[in-house]
């Protein structure tokens, strides 16, 4: 029962993104570090419907954890519990413990947690009424904070996402004047400008073309050494390309998690294997 489709088992480049597959700049076999965040029997509801049925998962520090699974499996909900965005939806609630370092984030003001745990969404969401520069600074200035070295913050954040050279001559243009992929990198820069420790990404490439997607994936590689990252994706190849650790969710439960290579080539649970081989989902 262990046969796997070779196309899914290994890291696969998106068709058309590169003529020759570049070597991964990214060693998957790094030493496992300690957990930056962890959840303990995390449950979540929309109204009376339980969409997360007790998930216990540790997220390794300065590593990329990918969460995969079919639609409706609770992977986005799980991600949105990690910075308490889940509860902003009317009727939604969560229960259980989510540790960020030594702190249970459900015992502190969500605003504090969201500054430490940034988030990037499926659709690029630059603020349409702000320039590129002001979008980067939005997390600070909209909160009436006056950063001392605003220009340095902008440059550093845009450098980090590789957008600086593309936009440095038009920082005063609206953030929405950029292309979709640039907008998404702008949103990542905006999230980084408030100096978070963890970065959550909810299908950050699903609205982008393959080239922009490849650019974001490179960026995830580059940021991995500095931030603890969690990425939800529908795209198994993407998980295989970017993540150190992959977790498979099914019907509100964590089925299994482990080193990406191991999970894709040698899944322990038959449901994981069925999903990876395309038998459902």
């Amino acid at each position: 029962m262990m046969e796997l489709e070779p196309a899914i088992a290994g890291p696969v480049r998106p068709i058309g993104s590169r003529s020759t597959p570049a070597p991964l700049p990214f060693p998957p076999e790094r030493p496992r570090s300690s957990a930056k965040m962890s959840t303990d029997d995390l449950r979540a509801w929309f109204g009376t419907q339980e969409v997360l049925k007790g998930v216990t998962l540790a997220l390794a520090e300065r590593q990329v954890t990918a969460i995969i699974g079919p639609s409706g499996c609770g992977k986005s909900t799980f991600l949105r519990c990690l910075n308490r965005m889940h509860e902003t939806v009317p009727g939604a609630r969560a229960q259980g413990r989510v540790w960020l370092g030594e702190q249970d984030i459900y015992t502190v003001d969500p605003v504090v947690t969201r500054r430490r745990v940034g988030m990037v969404f499926q659709k690029p969401t630059p603020f349409p009424f702000l320039s590129i520069r002001d979008n980067v600074l939005a997390g600070l200035t909209l909160n009436r904070e006056r950063p001392k070295h605003a220009h340095a913050v902008v440059e550093q954040a845009l450098q980090q996402v590789g957008l600086w050279d593309e936009v440095k001559d038009r920082l005063d243009r609206p953030g929405t004047s950029l292309s979709g992929g640039q907008q998404q990198r702008l949103c990542i820069a905006r999230a980084l400008a408030v100096a978070p420790e963890v970065l959550l990404m909810d299908e950050p490439c699903s609205a982008l073309d393959p080239i922009a997607t490849a650019r974001i994936e490179e960026l995830i590689h580059e940021l991995a050494g500095r931030y603890t990252m969690v990425i939800v994706t529908h795209n198994m190849q993407q998980a295989a390309r970017v993540a150190h650790v992959t977790a498979f969710f099914y019907m509100g439960q964590l089925v299994e998690s482990g080193a990406t290579e191991q999970l894709f080539t040698n899944p322990k649970d038959p449901r994981t294997e069925d999903y990876l081989t395309g038998r459902f989902g």
Binding site: N83, M85, T88, V111, V112, T113, R114, R115, G118, M119, F121, K123, T125, F127, P128, A138, G139, L142, N143, C187, R190, A191, V194
Partner: peptide
């Protein structure tokens, strides 16, 4: 759009600030 609101909240802005500034 709800996603603009969410983007503001996810940046750690308090809800009232998101309402006014976003």
């Amino acid at each position: 759009p709800i996603h603009l609101r969410e983007a503001g909240l996810a940046l750690g802005l308090p809800a009232w600030r998101v309402t006014l500034s976003v």
